[in-house]
């Protein structure tokens, strides 16, 4: 410790200021996180039934159309008609189901069932039997 005492004093003062600033930054960050969480809760308004139905419908139909389109293009390119179209159409159907499951899972996550409501038998009920 070869530092002169006056720099020592200034460092202590600077450290004090830094600590104060750090605590202020931390509290501001906490406030912002709370704000963000509240915003994310507010930002999921209930979609109307029509919008929900159309969303699920288009997700399903679009996947089938894309599957059939790819299959048709494969047939055009490779001359394997009609196998590409048939197989990819079924694949598109599967992808449509997958889309619908994802959308519905998302919607359920956005608006969870109220606590205490009966959601049908689950794993615990099975175990009791």
């Amino acid at each position: 410790m070869a530092k002169p005492p006056d720099t020592e004093g200034r460092n202590a003062g600077a450290r004090e200021v830094t600590r104060d600033l750090a605590s202020r930054i931390a509290s501001a960050k906490r406030e912002r996180d709370v704000e963000d969480n509240r915003a994310s809760k507010d930002a999921s308004p209930e979609m109307s039934g029509l919008a929900r139905g159309l969303r699920i419908g288009t997700e399903f139909v679009a996947a089938i159309l894309v599957g059939a389109g790819i299959g048709y293009l494969i047939d055009l390119g490779l001359g394997t008609s009609p196998w590409g179209l048939l197989i990819l159409l079924v694949m598109g159907f599967a992808a449509g189901i997958l889309n619908v499951i994802r959308v519905v899972a998302q919607m359920n996550a956005a608006s969870p069932a109220p606590p205490g409501s009966d959601l049908g038998p689950d794993a615990e009920d099975e175990a009791e039997r």
Partner: peptide
């Protein structure tokens, strides 16, 4: 392949939904 088709169907479902409504 199912995931790929699901991914490719996104722009179509996105555009058809807005246009259709």
């Amino acid at each position: 392949p199912i995931e790929v088709i699901s991914f490719l169907s996104r722009p179509i479902s996105l555009s058809v939904r807005l246009f259709g409504n």
